[in-house]
Design a protein around this nucleic acid. Structure first.
Lengths: 139, 139
DNA sequence: TTTTCATATGCAACCGAGTTGCAAACAAAA
DNA sequence: TTTTGTTTGCAACTCGGTTGCATATGAAAA
């Protein structure tokens, strides 16, 4: 596990530091879906400065290690990217699910966003779909 | 026009005040899609207090006069509801389009959000779909 | 029209999320 | 071990949004 984390950081030309290791570990071991900034601060026991967490997430985002997820309640969450994600450009064409009971955000990797036919003149570039409801654990 | 505004307010048991009339007028005459809080402040020429604008939007939202729209960039925008919207509960099942050139948000009333098949155990309640791209005016 | 009363407004102060500049701490390479 | 460029933590700040309270105002009664 520790070697895996080091490998991911090195592969992205990032120096291996305490906060990066810890935050990356959280993403790798997280079972309850995507993580918000607040979740990370809590789970690290406020060991790292708020600013460090923000900057680490920013860095991971730029390198394509994680991707951001839009939510209905206007907060930002993050999840690990799949292998196919390269720096900056994500294959993030799956539906996200937000549970209204446990408020976890889950990547439904197997559910692809369907194509929609837009009115004349509209050129789509990117599409996001968020479903709110009850997840399979809270059901 | 003025009578129409008064009628909408009265129908929703709201007293007719300057700020409510002006903000409602903005929504009725707005051609460039949905309005963000900032747009409203600008268009009213800072005539009303920030707080008043916030509270007016809140009120309209509760009464179902307007509905909120999720955006990719995590800002909140509002648009007029269709006749079929009742207080608090919206028939907001259409796709929203955010233009990456003019950054207007447009309700594509004619484009309904397609049904998606979720994995076993997931119960959907609400679904939102946002397409980012170039709108027909900027095209 | 005037009076009354609930409601809406404006102000000031506050809150939380996120950002920036800078000095100190640290990882990686020499 | 020393050097150097990057990362971290702190403080201070910005921005969007909220709250409490006194004042102003709309609507309904007199």
């Amino acid at each position: 596990m520790d070697t895996q984390i080091d490998a991911i950081l090195k592969k992205n030309q990032l120096s291996v530091t305490g906060s990066r290791k810890r935050i990356l570990e959280l993403f790798l071991t997280s079972t309850g879906g995507a993580l918000a900034h607040g979740d990370i601060e809590k789970k690290t026991g406020e060991k790292f400065d708020r600013v460090t967490v923000y900057r680490t997430l920013q860095t991971f985002l730029e390198k394509g290690i994680i991707h951001s997820i839009p939510t209905v309640d206007n907060s930002v969450r993050y999840a690990m990217c799949k292998e196919t994600c390269a720096g900056g450009h994500h294959h993030d064409n799956h539906v996200h699910f937000v549970c209204s009971v446990c408020s976890n955000t889950i990547c439904l990797d197997t559910v692809l966003i369907p194509e929609v036919k837009l009115p004349e003149g509209f050129q789509p570039e990117e599409c996001q779909m968020v479903v709110r409801g009850v997840c399979k654990d809270c059901h």
